[in-house]
Design a protein around this nucleic acid. Sequence first.
DNA 1: AACATTTACTTAACAATGTTAATTTAACAA
DNA 2: TTGTTAAATTAACATTGTTAAGTAAATGTT
Lengths: 217, 217
Amino acid sequence: MLSKLSIMPPKPKTEAERQQLRTLIIDAARELFVIRGVEAVTMREIAKRIDYSATSIYLHFADKEAVLRAILDVDMLALATSLKTILQIVDPVERMQALGQGYAEFALSFPNHYRLMFMAERHPCDPEKSSLQQNNAEQDAYFLLKTVVNDVFLAGRFRAELQDVDLIAQTIWAGVHGACSLQIAMACDKWVNWTEIEARLQLMQTVLIRGLLREST
Amino acid sequence: MLSKLSIMPPKPKTEAERQQLRTLIIDAARELFVIRGVEAVTMREIAKRIDYSATSIYLHFADKEAVLRAILDVDMLALATSLKTILQIVDPVERMQALGQGYAEFALSFPNHYRLMFMAERHPCDPEKSSLQQNNAEQDAYFLLKTVVNDVFLAGRFRAELQDVDLIAQTIWAGVHGACSLQIAMACDKWVNWTEIEARLQLMQTVLIRGLLREST
DNA sequence: AACATTTACTTAACAATGTTAATTTAACAA
DNA sequence: TTGTTAAATTAACATTGTTAAGTAAATGTT
C-alpha cells in the first residue's frame, strides 16, 4: 500500500478511480472488521490504513453502516460464487450434501465474515438496496440452495409429506447454520464440554438427510 | 420507581441494600438492552432510569460489560428454571421434545435476551466467573438437556451408532438454535421467502427425532 | 492569461459516550 | 469535636461518529 507523499490532493477522478477508492475503503474496513468486530473499529483507523483522513470516507459512503453494508454485499456474492461449482455434481442428493458442506466450510473459515452476514443485528440483504441479483444462482446463495433442494424434490427423493421447497430449504439452512453459529458464538465457552465441530456437522448432515429423505430402498 | 428527593446522599449501606441496588441497576439495564441492544444504550441512560448519576453504576460494576455479564447470569438461571418443569414428563422422548419446544419458546418470546445469551460476541458462561452452578439441572440449562438426552440414551431409543451423549445433545441444540437464531437474525430480511417459524420448528423437531431415534417398531 | 467553479481532499469542531478524578455530604468512631 | 469512611455527585477526559469550514489543484469560461 503506497503512501501519498506529503501533499497530493485533488484532480477530478474518473468513475473508475472513484470505484477503485471505494473498493480500497471496503477492503481496509473489512480487514479490520473481521479481526476486531465492527464496533471496535473506528473510521479514523480505517482511514489511516489507506492513508486518507477519516472524513474522506464520507465522500464515498453515507456512514459507517453503509461501509458495512457494502462489505456484506461483496461477501454475499463471494459466498454464492464459491458455492457455484457445486452445481457440477450430478447426483442431486450428493449435490445437496456438498452444498451444506461448502456452506459450513465458508462459515468456519471466515467466522467473522459469517458473523456479520448471518448473526449480527444489521444485515444488508434487502433486494432493494443490494447490488446483487435475487434469484440468480451466481449471486444469490439462498436461491442456489433452493434450486438444489428443488432438484432433489423433483427427483422424488424427499418424504411424501414434504411438499414445500422453501420450508425444506430453510430447515436445512437452519440445521447447518445452527451447528456453525453455535460454534462461532459459543465454542470458547468453558461451560459446555464441546465435541469436535466436524463430528457435530457430520451428525447434523446425517440427521437432515435421514429426516428429510424417503427410506432408501 | 420512587425518585430520590433533592438530596438524599450517603449512609453506610448494609450488604442487603447494596445487593438491592445492584439488582436495580441490572433490571434497568436489561430493560433497555433488550429493547434497543447493548451498544445503543448509554450508562447515563441506565442511571437516569433509576435516578442515579451515571458514575454511581461504577461503584457496583467495573464497567458496562460487567453489567451485561451480570444480566446474562441472571437470565441463564431464568432459562434453566423455566425449563425445569419439563422433567415431570414421564416418557423420555416426549420429555426431550418438550425441552426443545420450551427452549424455542423462550428464544422467540425474548429474542433480544436470546441474542445476548447465545448469539452475541461476548457471553458470560465461564464457570469460573459465573455465580451459577455447573452440572446442576436447576441452574444449568445445558446440563438439563444432557440429562434428558441421557435418559433417552439409557432407554435405548437412539440409533445404535450414536454413543456420545454430548454429541447428540449438541446436535439437538444446534438444530433448535439454528431455527431460532436464523429467525431472530434474519426474519426481517426481505431477500428470503420465509415460511412460518412454527412450521420450521416443527419440521426441525421431526427431522431431529427421525434422524436420531431408532426406527419405531 | 485571468478568474471563477468544481473536485478531492484536509483540518477544526461538535455532541455523545465510557470512564476516571475531584468534590460533596452525611454517618460513624475516637 | 474531629477525623475517617461511605455513597453519592459534578467535572473532566479521551475517543468516537459525523458535520462544517477551509484549501489547493484541475478545469471551464471569458
